[in-house]
């Protein structure tokens, strides 16, 4: 994939996801290059994060419903926050 044909998004992992998926020394923020039309589910796959482990997806400050994560297309310059599950009760 050439850079011109893809999109660049910034991803942040929080809480347990951060510890489970420390990909580089900076640890916190990943700037990813994805194919056009990629979704939050594709983004998780590219990071090696099981989408099942992601409870909350926040795209540019807006929460993405679980049902919409496989169909919402990311755009160049997007910011995505991923949070893990909590088991309230």
């Amino acid at each position: 994939m050439s850079e011109a044909s893809g999109i660049r998004v910034t991803v942040r992992l929080f809480a347990g996801l951060r510890q489970m998926h420390l990909l580089d020394a900076s640890g916190d923020v990943y700037r990813l290059h994805l194919a056009n039309g990629s979704t939050p589910v594709d983004l998780c796959a590219s990071l090696g994060v099981d989408p099942y482990q992601v409870h909350i997806v926040i795209l540019n400050g807006e929460m993405i419903h679980e049902y919409a994560r496989a169909v919402t297309q990311l755009e160049d310059g997007d910011y995505v926050d991923l949070w893990p599950e909590v088991a309230g009760g």
């Binding site: 809480a15 347990g16 996801l17 951060r18 510890q19 893990p84 909590v86 088991a87 309230g88 009760g89």
Partner: peptide, 18 residues
């Protein structure tokens, strides 16, 4: 997928740096 269960197991696993 995380080899634990129950509220204690899941939350202690996922709570991480929080």
């Amino acid at each position: 997928k995380i080899n634990t269960g129950g509220t204690l197991g899941v939350n202690l696993h996922n709570i991480g740096d929080m």
